[in-house]
């Protein structure tokens, strides 16, 4: 009797995850219907975002999300791989322990802190070097890169660490140098895991709100250069959700949220189910 009740409690809680996810999609979809039926494809292809005219085109926000994430990936990926190599192959035990834990702890620092730091310390540097406002795509890309770096480095290191010692030793036993072993053995062996880790970090970066909200500018315009202020989906949501005043405005914001959710769901699913699953099987 109690056994049955307990079982049903646990099963309900587990099913709740599926229910919530389905619920989120349904709610976001329903609330964005108005915007979708009003604008159709224009919603994602037009960049005129004029709440006072009830015109909403999310092109700039979607593009801003993609470009800022790509910029962050371009900056973070090489450094993260370097850090991962350093942590798994170069550093001695003590440094490895200290550095490894610091990287993991830094991955836990709230993104709002990265955003605040970016605003007060990095934006002025960009302003001094390139002129202009300082706020914009470049600042967003860099802050985002710094924010995802610890997570990216930690998961990439974990992927590299799956390479069996005996395999590495075999390559050393043939006269390989450390770099030979890294590029010929570790990277090919852990390839799926490394790519999966990088894509997973990408999935997180797309949805990151606070690190970029401070430094992006929230201007609904496709940027002419990476120094221009622009916006991204999370930035728009963060800035405008509590100010929206018409039902079409709300509906458009829900449309943005749905777009963001789908984008990140797809990216994370590819990372998890294609690459990381393959890595675990190997």
């Amino acid at each position: 009797m109690i056994d049955k009740i307990f079982f049903n409690f646990t099963r309900f809680s587990a099913l709740l995850i599926l229910i919530i996810v389905a619920w989120i999609f349904t709610v976001l979809f329903n609330h964005s219907l108005e915007a979708m039926s009003t604008f159709g494809l224009d919603f994602i292809t037009k960049d005129e975002w004029a709440p006072n005219l009830d015109k909403f085109g999310a092109h700039a926000a979607i593009l801003g999300s993609i470009i800022s994430t790509m910029l962050a990936m371009m900056l973070a990926v090489p450094i993260a791989i370097g850090v991962a190599i350093f942590l798994s192959e170069i550093a001695h035990d003590k440094i490895k322990g200290f550095f490894g834990v610091s990287v993991e702890l830094l991955a836990a620092i709230p993104s709002v802190i990265y955003g605040m730091w970016g605003l007060f310390f990095f934006v002025p540097i960009i302003r001094d070097i390139f002129g202009g406002l300082g706020i914009g795509l470049l600042a967003a890309g860099i802050v985002l890169a710094i924010m995802i770096l610890p997570f990216m480095a930690a998961v990439t290191r974990d992927a590299m660490n799956t390479t069996p010692d005996i395999l590495k030793e075999s390559a050393y036993a043939l006269g390989g140098t450390q770099w030979d072993v890294i590029k010929d053995i570790i990277i090919p062996y852990a390839k799926a895991g490394i790519i999966g880790s990088l894509i997973l970090a990408l999935g997180r970066a797309i949805g990151e709100t606070m690190a970029v909200t401070f430094v992006m500018g929230n201007v609904h315009k496709v940027p002419g250069s990476i120094l221009d202020p622009t916006t991204s989906i999370p930035v728009t949501l963060a800035n405008e959700f509590s100010e929206a005043d018409s039902s079409l405005y709300f509906s458009s914001l829900f449309g943005l949220a749905l777009t963001l959710l789908i984008m990140s769901f797809v990216v994370i699913a590819v990372a998890k189910f294609y690459f990381l699953r393959k890595a675990r099987r190997a």
Binding site: P164, E169, S170, A171, Y172, L174, G175, T177, D184, Y189
Partner: peptide
Amino acid sequence: IHLRTKIGMIFQKPTAFPMSIFDNVAYG
């Protein structure tokens, strides 16, 4: 590096590298 090309080693478990049969043998 020189020493290890003169004194080779075979391990407890087979350690085929993640590459083709030919490339494995050609590696050293």
